[in-house]
Every structure is written in C-alpha cells, then in structure tokens.
C-alpha cells in the first residue's frame, strides 16, 4: 500500500485456515410463531465476537445444510458493551453478544457448537430480539430522575464529596441490558419482581442531594407488589452483571431504607 491510505489493521486478512465455527441459533419468526433451530458454519477468524458471527450470517444467510434462510434479527448498537442492546443467551447463559469472544467461548474445544437463544424472561420479538421495555416502565415507577426546577441556568449544583460520587458512579454505569433480571430466579411472571437494576437506580437517585427529594416516594414504590421484598438474594444479578454494579449492596441498602420508611409511615401517616 505504500504511503497512500488508511488501511485498517485487522487480523482477518491473515487468517486463511479452513477452520469453521459451528453456531446453533434459536429462531422465531414472530412473537407467536413456533421456535425453530438453525445451525450455521462460519469461517473462523481470530478475535471474532458473537456480533461479528451474526454479521457473517447476514452476508451469506445459508445454513449448514446449504438451505437459504434469512439474516438473524437481533438487537445491537454500540458493540462495545455500553449501550446494553445485545444481551442474549450464549451457550445458555445471559451475556452481551458484543463482548462474548468466540475464542474464549470455545476455550480448548474448537469443535464445540456455540448456541444462541433469546433471553428467556422477555417476550420474543423475532429471533434473538426481545422486548425489554418492562425495565423502562419500572424506572418510571420509581421516579428514577432528579426533579430539577428547569433546564435554565440556575448556577452550580450542590457540592458533593468525592466519596459520594465514588458510590454513585458505579450505580450510574447500569446499561439497562436486563441481564440481572434474566438470571434472577425471582424475576418471572408469577412474582412480577422489579429486578435489581431498578432497585439500584432508586438508590442512585436517593443518594443525589437534589434527587433525594423523591426519596420517600421511591421507597414506597419499592414496597409495592413486585417490589424489593421479592428478592430471594440468590445474588445471580451481581455475578452476571457485565458492568459489575454493586447490586446486592444496593438491594441490601434499599431493603433497610424501605423498611424504615414503612415503619415510619405506619406510625405517622
């Protein structure tokens, strides 16, 4: 290429081996359609992730038997594990497809078949795409915001100790991927449990100097049906969270605050 142009240095050009990756994908044409399974074989390249596998299928949507099929529908956006879109079940476990690297999934078993399936606790839209809007409804229910007077210039905000910021920041890293809800044994149709993500957000805003004006409302909301009491403390949320949020700590803290609020309400309201 000489000095001419920008050539993106990607390892794909060096890989010529005939090795192929086997992927089995659960597919479902619509919310009410029957689920089926399709198997694909994709040429191996080092450093592939699951989203690049799905991209390869879109380029050549033909299954392992040579039958023509359709590109797989799935949610994705940033591809760097910050937008929270691409959560799915990979080898049965909930994770982000973008940061699930094929080499790591296969480990020392290069012939293993990788399986992909939609998250199991949310209604399927199509293939690997599911409807996770329940989380956003929950965030509304706990008023996860700071009720500022207005967006006009009212001067600097209140001072805040760095220690408070250091507690709030990790909670604010929640990417709404819903993996904490997917892996939670208590998050299901029967309980209608709110899930760890929302509880953590309630804590985040209760800790904000201005956001704490809604503290009591949030604590009362979390004592509603499906609230914090449904937590069974299996702690899967904190294990599975791709952003390592201190979710169990948030649940514990909010558990105390909700209880205190309920007692207070019982004697004063």
């Amino acid at each position: 290429m000489g000095t001419a142009t920008l050539e993106v240095p990607v390892t794909q050009k060096t890989a010529t081996s005939a090795r192929r990756i086997k992927v089995e994908i659960r597919r479902q044409a619509s919310p009410d359609a029957k689920a089926t399974t399709e198997t694909f074989e994709i040429p191996y390249r080092p450093n592939m992730n699951i989203t690049s596998l799905l991209g390869e299928i879109a380029l050549n949507p033909v299954d392992v038997s040579g039958r023509e099929t359709t590109p797989v529908t799935y949610d994705s956006n940033c591809l760097e594990e910050i937008c929270g879109s691409c959560a799915m079940l990979i080898d049965g476990k909930a994770m982000m497809a973008c940061s699930a690297l094929v080499d790591r999934l296969l480990g020392d078993k290069p012939d293993k078949t990788i399986t992909l399936a939609p998250l199991s606790k949310f209604p399927v839209v199509r293939d690997l795409a599911v409807d996770r809007s329940v989380l956003f409804e929950n965030l509304k229910a706990v008023k996860a915001w700071v009720p500022i007077d207005g967006s006009y210039d009212l001067g600097a905000g209140p001072r805040q100790q760095p220690q408070i910021q250091e507690q709030r920041y990790p909670l604010s890293n929640c990417i709404s991927c819903t993996i904490c809800m997917e892996v939670c044994p208590q998050f299901n149709d029967a309980t209608g449990f709110v899930g760890a993500a929302t509880i953590a957000q309630a804590k985040l805003f209760n800790m904000d100097p201005a956001g704490s004006v809604l503290k009591e409302e949030r604590l009362r909301a979390l004592a509603g049906d499906g609230g914090i009491q449904e937590c069974g403390f299996a702690q899967n949320c904190v294990q599975a969270c791709p952003k390592q949020l201190p979710l169990t700590e948030a649940i514990s803290d909010m558990g105390r605050d909700v209880f205190v609020q309920q007692v207070k309400d019982f004697f004063t309201r």
Binding site: P123, A141, G192, R220, L222, G226, Q229
Partner: peptide, 20 residues
C-alpha cells in the same frame, strides 16, 4: 396488552407486609 413480566405495581398491594 403487555406480554411478559409485569412492571412494578408501585406502592400497591400488601405483599411487602406478608413477605417481611
């Protein structure tokens, strides 16, 4: 109608009391 898990019923019901 919403499919899947229902959102939080904020401040509704008595399950908190029973569960606690």
């Amino acid at each position: 109608r919403r499919r899947g898990v229902q959102p939080l019923r904020a401040a509704e019901g008595h399950s908190y009391l029973w569960r606690r």
